[in-house]
C-alpha cells in the first residue's frame, strides 16, 4: 500500500518518464509511480482497487469526480441501474470518473468528455495516439490485445506492460471501476524518438 499523504505536492511534469530505446518499465512500478505523483482530492480513497471493492468505490466516487457531464460525441447515456464507472488519471494527475454504458470504448468516452486523447486514425487501430495505461489490477480482466493492437502499441510512447489502445478497450461488467492513465504527450522530442526500432 502506498502512502498518499506525502504525494500531493509533487508536480505532474515528472509523471510519465518516456521510455528510452524500447526498454519496458515494470507496469506496476510505473503505474504506482504515476499515481504517487498525482494529486488526489480525496486521500481516503484506497489506491488498490479491486472489482470486489466496488461498493466502497461507488460510495466514494463522487467526491473527486465530474460525473454526469453533458454527453456529446456519440455515446449513449447508460440505462439507470446499468451504469459502469471508469476513472481517467489525466496528465496533470487529476482524476475524472464517468458513468458509462457497457460496450463504450475508452476513446469514445475520452472524446465525449473532451479529455486530451487523440484518435488520429478514427479508432480503427491504425495508430497509437489513444494509448492508455491500465491499472495493473484490471489488466487481466480485459480481453488480450489482438495482433493489430500490439503492432500499434509497438510504436506508442512511454509503453508499459499494461499499455492498451483506448479504441480497442470496451467497457464491460468485468472491468467495472476500471482505472486508466493517459501518458504524458507533451515533452521534448528528439530525433531518436522518430526511429522505428
Amino acid at each position: 500500500m502506498l502512502s498518499l499523504t506525502n504525494c500531493i505536492s509533487k508536480k505532474s511534469s515528472l509523471l510519465w518518464k518516456p521510455l528510452t530505446s524500447g526498454r519496458l518499465f515494470s507496469s506496476l512500478a510505473s503505474y504506482k509511480y504515476a499515481l504517487r505523483h498525482s494529486t488526489f482530492n480525496d486521500p481516503t480513497i484506497s489506491l488498490r482497487r479491486h472489482p470486489k471493492a466496488i461498493n466502497f468505490y461507488k460510495s466514494q466516487v463522487r467526491s473527486f469526480s465530474s460525473t454526469l457531464t453533458t454527453f456529446h460525441g456519440h455515446l449513449n447515456p447508460p440505462k439507470p441501474g446499468e451504469e459502469l464507472h471508469i476513472t481517467f488519471v489525466l496528465k496533470d494527475g487529476e482524476q475524472k470518473t464517468f458513468e458509462v454504458s457497457e460496450g463504450d470504448s475508452l476513446l469514445d468516452i475520452a472524446q465525449a468528455h473532451n479529455l486530451d486523447m487523440e484518435g488520429a486514425c478514427g479508432g480503427s487501430c491504425a495508430c497509437s495516439t489513444c494509448h492508455v495505461i491500465v491499472d495493473p489490477d484490471y489488466i487481466d480482466a480485459l480481453p488480450e490485445p489482438e495482433d493489430d493492437e500490439n503492432d500499434m502499441l509497438d510504436l506508442a510512447y512511454g509503453l508499459t506492460e499494461t499499455s492498451r489502445l483506448g479504441c480497442q478497450v470496451k467497457m464491460s461488467k468485468e472491468v467495472e471501476g476500471l482505472r486508466v492513465a493517459l501518458p504524458a504527450m507533451t515533452r521534448n522530442v528528439s530525433n531518436n524518438d522518430f526511429s522505428n526500432n
Binding site: 495508430c127 526511429s195 522505428n196
Partner: peptide, 8 residues
C-alpha cells in the same frame, strides 16, 4: 522518420 502519430 516516424509514423503519423509521431508527426502529430
Amino acid at each position: 522518420k516516424g509514423v503519423i502519430a509521431a508527426t502529430m
